[in-house]
C-alpha cells in the first residue's frame, strides 16, 4: 500500500468527490489560486476550475452562511476554515442555521454541508489560533463532528462526510498534515460513528481522538517496553455520532480507562466519555477513569510550555501507572 500524507489523503478525497458529484463545490479562503493555506486543496483549482473551487474573501460568517443556504437547495459545499479557531466569527451560522434549521422546520430542510479545517494546538500560534471546538460542536444536536488521526481515516471520513445529508464538521490537524500512513489506492469509505482500535491491549484502555491518538500510541509503546503494561488504544474518530459500544467494549476488556484529549477538561469530549463509562460500565472498572487533557488555561504561546500544556506521553504514562 502506498504511503501518503494526511494532507494528500484529504486532497484525494476532495478530488474524488468533486469528480463523483457535480454538486460538490469547495469554498474557502485561499483554497483555489493559492492552493490552500495548508495546501490541502493543492492543484484542485487548476484541475476543476473556478466553478468547483472558489476563493472566498475573509468573511467567515458570510461565506459559511452562504454555503448553508446553498446546501438547503441541494448544493454540497465543502467549506474550508483556514483554522477552526475562525469558526467563532461564523458561530451563529454554524450553530443556529446549519445546526437547527432541520429541527425548526420539522424536518422539511436539510443541510448537506461539510465544514472542514485544522483544529489543534501545538504550533505556537497563541490562544486565538489554537482552539479545538469539537466539544462545542458535539454539544449541538443537529451537527456531526469527526476528528481523524491518520491519513487513512482522514480520507475515508472526508468522503463519508461529503456524502452525508447532514452538516458534518471535519476537524483536522496541522501537525498531522505532513505525516504519512498507508492508504489503499482503491476507493473506500469510513462511516461516521465507528471507532477504531489502533493498538490491541489487555491492561488499560487509552481512549483518544485526533492527534491525541498518536500521543497515546507512543505512550502505549513505552508502557509495553518499560512497564510490561499492554495498553489498548481506541481512536474515537467520530465524536458525534459516537461509537459508544466500542468504548464500553474496550473498558469491559481492560477494566481500566485513561482518556487522552487535546480538548480542555471542563465539559470537554473526555468528560462525556467518562460519564458514559461510569453510567454503563461502572461494574467493569477496576479503577477510577482518569483523564489527560490540555492543561486548563488558554493555549500558551511559549513553544516549550505549549508542549507541556497538551497531553504528553509522560503524563499519559504517569496516569496509567497510578491506576495499574
Amino acid at each position: 500500500m502506498p504511503l501518503i500524507t494526511y494532507r494528500k489523503a484529504l486532497n484525494d478525497a476532495l478530488a474524488e468527490e468533486i469528480t463523483r458529484d457535480e454538486n460538490v463545490v469547495i469554498i474557502g479562503e485561499e483554497v483555489a489560486q493559492y492552493n490552500g493555506a495548508y495546501k490541502v486543496t493543492e492543484g484542485l483549482w487548476q484541475r476543476f476550475g473556478d466553478k468547483r473551487v472558489v476563493d472566498a474573501p475573509i468573511s467567515e460568517a458570510g461565506f459559511i452562511g452562504m454555503g448553508i443556504g446553498a446546501s438547503m437547495l441541494g448544493i454540497r459545499p465543502v467549506m474550508e476554515l483556514m483554522f477552526w479557531s475562525f469558526a467563532y466569527v461564523a458561530w451563529d451560522q454554524i450553530i443556529n442555521n446549519a445546526g437547527q434549521v432541520r429541527y425548526m422546520s420539522g424536518g422539511l430542510i436539510n443541510c448537506p454541508i461539510v465544514i472542514r479545517g485544522p483544529a489543534n494546538g501545538g504550533t505556537s500560534v497563541g490562544a486565538t489560533h489554537s482552539h479545538t471546538p469539537e466539544n462545542f460542536i458535539a454539544n449541538t444536536p443537529g451537527l456531526k463532528v469527526v476528528c481523524p488521526a491518520t491519513a487513512y481515516d482522514a480520507k475515508g471520513l472526508m468522503k463519508s462526510a461529503i456524502r452525508d445529508n447532514d452538516p458534518v464538521c471535519v476537524m483536522e490537524n496541522t501537525l498531522l498534515y505532513g505525516e504519512s500512513w498507508e492508504v489503499p489506492e482503491e476507493e473506500y469509505l469510513i462511516p461516521l460513528g465507528v471507532a477504531d482500535i489502533k493498538r490491541e491491549g489487555t491492561d488499560v484502555s487509552l481512549i483518544a481522538h485526533g492527534r491525541a491518538v498518536i500521543t497515546a500510541l507512543k505512550a502505549a509503546e513505552i508502557l509495553a517496553a518499560e512497564h510490561d503494561i499492554h495498553a489498548e488504544v481506541l481512536d474515537l474518530r467520530s465524536i458525534r455520532p459516537l461509537d459508544e459500544e466500542a468504548i464500553l467494549n474496550t473498558v469491559r476488556k481492560t477494566h481500566r480507562a485513561v482518556l487522552v484529549d487535546e480538548n480542555k477538561p471542563f465539559c470537554g469530549v473526555s468528560a462525556q466519555i467518562a460519564a458514559t463509562i461510569q453510567e454503563k460500565a461502572f461494574d467493569d472498572l477496576d479503577a477510577p477513569v482518569q483523564r489527560v487533557c490540555a492543561l486548563d488555561a488558554p493555549a500558551i504561546y511559549s513553544p516549550v510550555l505549549e508542549n507541556l500544556q497538551l497531553p504528553t506521553v509522560s503524563r499519559i504514562i504517569e496516569k496509567v501507572l497510578q491506576i495499574r
Binding site: 458570510g62 452562511g65 437547495l73
Partner: peptide, 16 residues
Amino acid sequence: GQTPLGLGLAYGLKYK
C-alpha cells in the same frame, strides 16, 4: 442571521 442564507439560495440558483 438569514442574510447569508439568502445569499446562499442565490448562489445555489446560479450554480445550477
